[in-house]
Design a protein around this nucleic acid. Structure first.
Length: 139
DNA sequence: AGCCATGCACCG
DNA sequence: CGGTGCATGGCT
């Protein structure tokens, strides 16, 4: 049994807007967040490194961060998955391409992607309000 | 809520 | 000095 989520990359996600963003935004949807480890909410900008393996067996290190400085006088309150530049570039991903993250038994995580496509909504696929959707969450 | 942007620190 | 990522703010 695996859990998987996916997102259609925005221009900013891939760095095509010129931003040195180096990461994508993760919506605060509880179902999406359940894919990631739980980060503490009582500390500022908690982060955790996650390793994802691709089709070819290469490992990529991404950083899951909760920018929550709103609780400390700032204005941020959002999750981001950063450090994806090497992965984005070496795979030539662009805005519109779909990123797929999977979590297998034992906690092994893998990344895949689909080139620009039109999402096909089939039964069993819960489409959310954003570009993210749940492919299959184990519970 | 989500995407767009940027000043600065760090490092090769 | 140029690329990268952190942290933070802005815009829609």
């Amino acid at each position: 049994m695996i859990s998987a989520i996916s997102k259609v990359l925005s221009a900013n996600d891939t760095g095509e807007t010129g931003a040195h963003q180096a990461g994508i935004l993760v919506p605060k949807d509880p179902t999406i967040l359940s894919f990631f480890p739980t980060l503490p909410t009582d500390v500022k900008n908690p982060r955790i490194h996650l390793y994802f393996r691709d089709d070819e067996g290469s490992q990529w290190e991404f950083a899951f961060i909760y920018y929550n400085n709103r609780q400390f006088g700032g204005t941020r309150n959002e999750y981001r998955l950063t450090r994806m530049t090497p992965f984005i570039n070496s795979n030539g991903l662009h805005e519109g391409d779909e990123l797929i993250l999977e979590k297998h038994d034992g906690g092994v995580r893998t990344v895949r992607f689909k080139r620009r496509h039109t999402p096909v909504v089939t039964d069993g696929v819960l489409t959310l309000g954003t570009a993210w959707k749940v492919v299959g969450i184990e519970k």
